[in-house]
Design a protein around this nucleic acid. Structure first.
Lengths: 220, 220
DNA sequence: GATTTATCGATAACGATATATCGAAAGGAA
DNA sequence: TTCCTTTCGATATATCGTTATCGATAAATC
């Protein structure tokens, strides 16, 4: 999960660019298994919904070798660069607090490993859950959060509790030493400097979807 | 789900603005139950991480009454305006295809109703699931999708199948007449004009999170 | 080897979004 | 009533991300 890119120093890459990287990676892997050696930015652009120029700009930020005129980018080299950049070569551990519907689904979902994330345990307050396992991962009581984080040297916590409990969980995560929080409860969390929060706000997303839907239905 | 706002005609509101509306709404409701009658844009801004100017700009787009100098915005009126704007007063039905971990969680999650979305049924290809119910909602075979959509006049479909199956499901949704698709499989979907797709790409989100994490850990 | 052409990379233009500034309005205080 | 202060709303400015343009490069072809 930790980035060890060769060439992006402290510059920092925009979130927009970052968010496209997994899609580039997926496409490149598909081409790679087909035996394709070089792909043009235009081909990548066509596969996802972006412009070729943007693809080149993005790739310029992470690629260790330049694209070759008339050929394009070298597929396998680029895959390696992006994986290194995204830290997928270096799967990092995370834990999840809130083993309800969504939390349970996440614990059981093996796909996160492909994105460099390994959820190693769940935490919950419900005593009926504590002590059980989901997908071979232990469910522990919240009290053990701090110890667990310190022992296993974990940086990332995922919050999937109801929104009323989110800030409390967040505080404990911060106290335990977590540095990044992926929050699925739709509340704003306050955290000290140095801790980052990423919101996965389904309500916001849904608002955008229905907003667009409105425009479409209304326009005819 | 369909917007019936009094004052934003065909103008269209930016996605960014749209995405903040649920957060405004949440804050305003919290204040409302406390008995607060007026709130200043600065107070709202402080609660979430945006500037007061931005709050005023956003609210100007949806509010039927202007904010009052020295007092701020009238809480309850504003709540009504936003709910109307977002269509939360008019819950619309949706269906979900893919009753795996995430799909199951969504079917069981009652909270979507608060956001104007009512998931009425799940669809899956697994014959062991078909015929069962989750949270009182029937699981149906994919073949019945088209009939179901037409009979119930549904506009929104949610895709929670593995990515290999996503485009196929998407095609069937389009054929059935769905107008908006909320896609949780991280693949780009191709749809004809007039159908809108909203991507919920956890891989992209995770990339952003870890990107920020990298910056934080690296900066010290 | 010369020519053609697909493709890149850099720079500049554009558009959308967020911020800063400032005059105006209205509640509250003198 | 008059003045002061808060807060709004409008306009202008800045920032960020995307797109457009164009010369340069190197593979492919003749």
């Amino acid at each position: 999960m930790i980035h060890r890119s060769p060439n992006h120093e402290e510059a920092g890459v925009s979130k927009a660019t970052l968010s496209r990287m997994p899609a580039y990676l997926r496409y490149l892997k598909e081409e790679s298994v087909k035996g394709v050696e070089y792909v043009a930015s235009a081909a990548i652009a066509k596969d996802m919904a972006v412009s070729a120029v943007l693809v080149r700009k993005d790739l310029a930020l992470v690629s260790s070798v330049a694209g070759r005129p008339r050929l394009g980018f070298e597929v396998n080299g680029l895959i390696a660069d992006i994986e290194k950049f995204l830290g997928y070569d270096n799967v990092s551990d995370a834990l999840i607090v809130g083993v309800g519907g969504l939390g349970r689904a996440f614990l059981g979902y093996e796909g996160f490993k492909n994105y460099g994330l390994n959820i190693v345990a769940g935490f919950d307050v419900d005593p009926r859950l504590v002590g059980t396992k989901i997908a071979k991962k232990p469910i522990l009581p919240l009290d053990e959060l701090t110890n667990f984080v310190r022992q296993r040297n974990i940086n990332i916590g995922i919050i999937t509790v109801p929104k009323g409990a989110a800030q409390g969980v967040c505080d404990r995560m911060v106290e335990a030493g977590l540095k990044a929080i992926w929050n699925f409860a739709s509340v704003k969390l306050s955290v000290p400097n140095g801790v980052i929060v990423r919101y996965e706000d389904l309500a916001a997303s849904l608002a955008m979807l229905s907003g667009e839907l409105f425009n479409v239905l209304d326009k005819k």
